[in-house]
């Protein structure tokens, strides 16, 4: 059976999420492997979310935010950029393929970029295969998380 990756998308409310909306309203096709979580800003993302996502079975994590300088809160994504760069290095040194984690700046009007990025990233993760290193074998029941 073909491997269908599970991908967690964390999107900022003002740009990437709206961009995803636009992709939807313009009826662009993109793979359904992405589960999007909306946050108010990319700097809202605690790096532990990403580690935890990998532990709870995500095969890839895609983070979307406004273009640098365009953040709704002015500087949020500039902090996030530094922070997520470190997260990436940590994942890499721990032995996770760096291709499983990606940060993209997608603005509210870039519906087609959103669709493109998701398609490309899904393909990339599909090629990397299932993520087993961090994954918890026996998942705790939802109430226990």
């Amino acid at each position: 059976m073909d491997f269908e990756p599970k991908i967690l998308g964390i999107a900022c409310n003002w740009c990437t999420y709206t961009g995803a909306d636009l992709a939807g309203t313009t009826r662009l096709q993109y793979p359904q492997n992405l589960r999007v979580v909306r946050v108010m800003c990319s700097s809202r993302i605690n790096p532990s979310f990403i580690f935890r996502a990998f532990q709870l079975g995500a095969d890839g994590v895609l983070v979307g935010g406004c273009h640098p300088g365009d953040c709704h809160y002015n500087t949020g994504n500039l902090y996030a950029r530094r922070r997520l760069a470190v997260t990436r290095k940590i994942l890499e040194f721990a032995g996770i393929e760096p291709g499983r984690f990606r940060v993209e700046w997608i603005s509210a009007s870039e519906g087609n970029k959103f669709a493109e990025v998701v398609t490309e990233f899904t393909e990339q993760v599909r090629n990397l295969g299932p993520q087993t290193k961090f994954k918890i074998e026996q998942l705790p029941t939802p109430e226990k998380i």
Binding site: P68, L78, Y79, R81, R82, V103, W105
Partner: peptide, 15 residues
């Protein structure tokens, strides 16, 4: 501290 600071000219290369 580096992570509570930023420079506008930080590049996307770091990602």
């Amino acid at each position: 501290p580096a992570l509570v600071n930023f420079r506008v000219e930080d590049s996307d290369k770091i990602l």
